[in-house]
Simulated scan of single mutants.
Amino acid sequence: MTYQHRLATREDLPAIVDIYNSVIPERSATCDLEPITVASREAWFAESDPQRHPIWVGHEPGKPEVVTGYVSLEPFLNGRRGYDVTADLALYLHPDHRGSGQGAQLLSHAIARAAELGFRTIATTIFASNERSLRLFRAHGFQEWGRLPAVADLDGRPEDVVFVGLPLGTRTALV
């Protein structure tokens, strides 16, 4: 299926939170162990900036109001200014839309836009056991830059975290 995407709006936040919460019980893509609330993500959404740290939502053609996934470019390592050339990428899909190509489409869009926004690097962390996500990111040129052994504990199960990154090339100006 070919998905479309658009910048997220405040009205999308409940769907974004639902998608994020859908991965929590799986213990495969986040260290949050309890569901989050829309209220708890208000500041995160308000701090996103379409010109620097955008959030895009995926949707089926002709159904822009039905959010099927999202990707965001966020400040790297607590937003310290020296890291402004790097974006921390987050990508989550609705369970009904995984394995359908949407992740690849959203990731490709984020990579292209990150370069246009002046980022030189995109980085993210993925659980070592999340082979599907690792394959997706590797297919888009991300390389493993490090492995943090047993830094997460998911209900008594130690989990390694793989740090992956993608250099985007030299960019001259930051937006």
Rank of each mutant, 00 (worst) to 15 (best):
M1C: 02
Y3C: 03
Y3S: 01
H5F: 15
R10W: 11
R10V: 13
E11R: 03
D12C: 08
P14N: 08
D18A: 15
I19L: 05
I19F: 12
Y20A: 08
N21K: 02
S22D: 05
I24C: 01
P25T: 01
P25Y: 11
E26S: 07
T30G: 03
T30M: 04
T30R: 04
D32V: 01
E34Y: 09
V38M: 07
A39R: 11
R41D: 02
E42V: 10
E42H: 08
A43L: 09
F45D: 03
A46W: 00
A46I: 03
P50N: 14
R52Y: 06
R52C: 09
R52F: 11
R52P: 10
H53N: 15
I55C: 07
I55Q: 09
W56G: 01
V57C: 07
G58S: 15
E60V: 12
G62R: 06
E65A: 15
V66T: 12
V66N: 07
V67R: 02
G69V: 02
G69E: 07
L73I: 08
P75H: 10
F76A: 04
L77R: 15
G79T: 03
G79S: 08
R80S: 09
R81A: 13
R81C: 06
R81G: 07
G82C: 15
Y83W: 13
Y83M: 05
T86L: 11
A87T: 03
D88P: 07
D88M: 14
A90E: 14
L91S: 04
L93S: 09
L93A: 10
H94Y: 08
H94E: 12
P95A: 07
P95R: 07
Q102H: 09
A104E: 14
Q105T: 14
Q105R: 06
L106I: 04
S108D: 13
S108C: 11
A110Q: 01
A112M: 10
L117H: 12
G118H: 10
R120Q: 15
R120M: 07
T124E: 02
T125I: 12
F127E: 00
S129F: 02
S129K: 14
S129I: 08
S129M: 01
N130S: 05
E131P: 00
R132D: 13
S133V: 09
S133A: 15
L134I: 12
R135G: 10
F137C: 01
R138I: 06
H140Y: 12
G141A: 06
E144H: 08
G146N: 11
G146R: 09
G146C: 06
R147D: 01
L148N: 06
A152S: 14
D153L: 13
D153T: 06
D155I: 07
D155P: 05
R157G: 00
D160A: 09
V162S: 00
T170E: 12
A173G: 14
V175C: 05
